[in-house]
Simulated scan of single mutants.
Amino acid sequence: MILVTGATGHIGNVLVKKLTSSRMAVRVLILPGDDLRSLAGLDVEIVEGDITDFNSISPLFEDVDRVFHLAGIISIMSGQDELLYRVNVMGTRNVVEACLKNNVDRLIYTSSVHALKEPPHGTQIDETCFYKPEYSRGGYDRTKAQASLEVLEGVKKGLDSVIVCPSGIIGPCDYNVSQMGQLILN
């Protein structure tokens, strides 16, 4: 069984479509009231929970082999720091702990290129750039760096994990029209 958090988001719904087209058993963790248009017609088990509440999600990780953790808040608006921290950092900590508690084989965490310490101008960003929250430009960048460090703490405890750091996301199945998607449409 594969568990996907953030399955109704742009990357999440594309991933779920790919997984189900390969006939994999998929469980999607959604917030109560989430718009499910992006999952319509897919053969998935839909469960409700909130990554900020460990007790609501831990049982959902039972009998799960792999977790794709994509749930998070993307915002560059001021005044969002508390929400960003609660969802991006504490939520990721809860996902890591639920994986460890339930002996999940692998966690694939979707972070962001903005979580990495920006190298000098003209230098390529790659795996050698580290997560340094103190060098972040804002709350989103900082919390994604902190969340990535939470995943690395889980690795120290024995969790097999991969961290993916995408940049601007564009393409089909952008049901909620992201800022990047709106830029392209404009």
Rank of each mutant, 00 (worst) to 15 (best):
K132R: 07
F130G: 05
M24Y: 14
S58Q: 13
T143I: 08
G72H: 11
F130P: 02
F68N: 10
R86S: 09
C99S: 11
D81L: 02
G168W: 11
Y135S: 12
D35L: 05
G138Q: 03
I30Q: 00
P120S: 10
L42H: 05
R106K: 14
D65E: 15
F130E: 06
E150H: 00
C129E: 01
K132C: 06
L107M: 05
A7V: 00
L39M: 10
Q124I: 14
R23Q: 13
C99D: 02
L83P: 02
P172T: 11
A115M: 13
V28W: 08
S161N: 05
V96K: 06
E134P: 04
I169M: 07
A25D: 14
H121Q: 06
L70A: 07
V113R: 15
K144Q: 06
K132S: 06
P133W: 10
I74D: 03
L185Q: 15
V67T: 15
T20N: 00
V14G: 02
I51M: 07
Q182E: 11
G168N: 12
L149H: 07
I46C: 03
D105W: 03
I73R: 14
Y140Q: 08
Y140S: 11
Y131M: 05
V96A: 11
F54Q: 00
V67R: 04
G122C: 09
I184H: 01
L70I: 14
T110Q: 03
G91F: 10
R142Q: 09
S21N: 11
K132F: 07
K157H: 05
K144N: 01
V151L: 09
G91W: 05
K132Y: 08
G9Y: 02
P119Y: 09
V28H: 08
V44Q: 05
S75V: 05
V44L: 03
L36M: 13
S136L: 04
E118Q: 10
S78K: 09
L100T: 03
V89M: 12
V28R: 13
T143E: 15
T5F: 15
S136H: 13
D50W: 04
R142V: 01
M90Q: 14
L3P: 02
D65M: 10
I57V: 10
A145N: 10
F68C: 12
R23W: 08
S56P: 05
Y109I: 13
S148R: 07
S21G: 03
R86H: 14
L183R: 06
S178T: 15
V162K: 04
Q80K: 14
